[in-house]
Design a protein around this nucleic acid. Structure first.
Length: 273
DNA sequence: AAAGAGGACAACCGCGAAACG
DNA sequence: ACGTTTCGCGGTTGTCCTCTT
């Protein structure tokens, strides 16, 4: 007996989400909170499976999702955490507030892997890549070999070939690239460098950042707050959205909060301040 | 300017774990 | 204790965009 599919696939929409679908999902979750994902599409009037709704909300619509390129500091964190945790993207993401596992995974596969290889570092093992094979291929074989390098050298390494010795020789030519030792690129994650942490993301307001700044609240924990936003007895999201009274109340305790703009949903259903 | 190639990223799929009855 | 349901994760695919020829 097989698993029951997460949803009845007949008549369900797939592919990119439209603004209208986003609006429906956001409205539903704002009104009802996150409940059983399986029931969400039906209740929200969406022709999507629950899984798709969860993914869309988690990765793109959630108000605390930080968008845009990873900062230098975030990228270094990712590299460092990947060295410790491997492909546990959700664990890595949990160390980077506002970033999703999917986003980090994509960034890793499209940017970081290449960058590490160019630096002469194996992105799988985080160890220096050994020099390429010295023996030149036979003239007749040369084309074939080049083909293999082209198709595999820039490609994701099959996880089944986890033995690094099987993959390194087909990777980038590192003749002209100085090899860096892992310790030269791995940073400790407990001391953010001021320059990097304030680089690309510093000018942007992120909801998470705002939450982190709410330190005046007793025992404040941004994760708990994000959880609480969906509970019945907490108007967190309303405060973040546009509740003037709540905001006045909060700023009466902490006037510095006035520096933060009020969070609103744009006409294109993205969150803004 | 048009076509093709490659890159980037959003979304899907299948599996395992956790929760629940 | 066991079967079923639901959720979350990681790998993979599909589509759109940009760059190159």
């Amino acid at each position: 007996m097989g698993r029951q599919p997460c949803c009845d696939k007949v008549g369900l929409k797939k592919g990119p989400w439209t603004a209208e679908e986003d609006r429906k999902l956001i409205n539903f979750i704002i009104t009802n909170g996150q409940c059983c994902w399986r029931a969400v599409p039906k209740l929200a009037g969406l022709l999507r499976c629950g899984k798709s709704c969860r993914l869309r909300w988690t990765n793109y619509l959630r108000p605390d999702v930080k968008r845009g390129l990873l900062s230098e500091y975030e990228e270094k964190m990712v590299i460092d955490l990947h060295a410790q945790l491997g492909n546990r993207w959700s664990k890595i993401a949990s160390h980077l507030p506002g970033r999703t596992d999917n986003e980090i995974k994509n960034h890793w596969n499209t940017h970081v892997k290449k960058k590490l290889r160019k630096m002469g570092i194996d992105p799988l093992t985080h160890k220096p890549l050994p020099p390429p094979a010295v023996e030149p291929p036979q003239p007749e074989e040369a084309d074939k070999v080049e083909e293999v390098i082209d198709s595999e050298g820039s490609e994701i390494v099959d996880s089944s070939k986890s033995d690094p010795t099987e993959i390194v020789n087909n990777d980038f030519c590192i003749d002209e690239i100085p090899v860096m030792e892992p310790h030269e690129i791995l940073l400790s994650c407990d001391e953010p460098t001021p320059s990097s942490s304030s680089s690309s993301s510093s000018s942007l307001y992120s909801p998470t950042k705002v939450l982190e700044e709410l330190h005046f609240l007793p025992s404040f924990d941004s994760e708990i707050m994000m959880d609480s936003m969906w509970s019945d007895d907490f108007g967190g999201l309303e405060l973040l959205i546009n509740d003037g009274d709540q905001r006045d109340y909060a700023t009466s305790f902490e006037p510095s909060l006035l520096q933060y703009p009020v969070m609103v949903m744009d006409e294109d259903y993205s969150w803004n301040f």
